[in-house]
Amino acid sequence: MTAVGATPVETTPVGTTPVLEARGLTVRFGSRDILSGVDLAVRAGELVALVGPNGAGKSTLLHALSGDVPASNGVVELDGRPLRASSPIDLARRRSVLTQSNEVSFPFSAREVVEMGRAPWRGRPEADADEAHVARAVADAEIAPLLDRFVTELSGGERARVAFARVRAQACPIILLDEPTASLDIRHQERVVERLRAHSDAGGAAVVVLHDLDLAAAYAGRVVVLDAGRIRSDGSPREALSSALLSEVYRHPIDVHPEGHTVRVRPVRTTRPTSAALPSAPHAERHLDPRRKDHSAHD
């Protein structure tokens, strides 16, 4: 597709030593433990989805893994070294981070923003590949038509795609993403997570916070379910996602059924809307959960 080909990843043997690891991680805001005693080791070749209800600590875990939030107890290590021991520029060449909000304070063009993703490589031999990485990132996020527009005047979803492209252009072996699909349409939700899967299949590592359990199950090789600051389950979608566990942590009945090597996840609708409110039942069901639209054929 581009001159870059597969994601450049330093050759860490897949599945051996963790590239990113949290041990006994506790994060406390005031007197409240947002995370308590979390152990998570991410290895090269893994795409790890962090899921869980609101306030479970998914974003905080991602912040702690990226170094934005200090650990109150425990350690976070990148390549076996504590995060604090590395300078920002060294970290920026090892892992890229996509934060949840991406407000740009001046009217830079989308192209300029994506090119900023190459900043950590300025003045280094890797900078020779700047154009190829930018072109690949632009293709991944499908933002070619937006490149000459100001990011300040793009829609939320378009801005999110530009930010995703910037993080892709950075071309780090490890990618951390906080709800990258939150404001995207279905095509781009699938595309973003599919690109992350391609990245991990090529030997990279990615940790992504997702709300869509079915999307997580479809692409992530490993799913971590968080609830109240603790890891409740951690494994392949078939191991980590069970109807009983999900129904408990989300406090809503959730149906999980195996399909191929993974599982399909969907919420159970216990209450039907009154027929007066909505024209027909099947339409009403889809209306209740717009994220399910693309999978309705399987239902």
Partner: peptide, 21 residues
């Protein structure tokens, strides 16, 4: 100049691009 450009993305975002904020 270059660091100020990155700062426009946000302080955390700039740090993740290697800027010592």
């Amino acid at each position: 100049a270059h660091r100020l450009d990155l700062l426009a993305l946000g302080e955390r975002q700039a740090r993740h691009l290697g800027v010592s904020i």
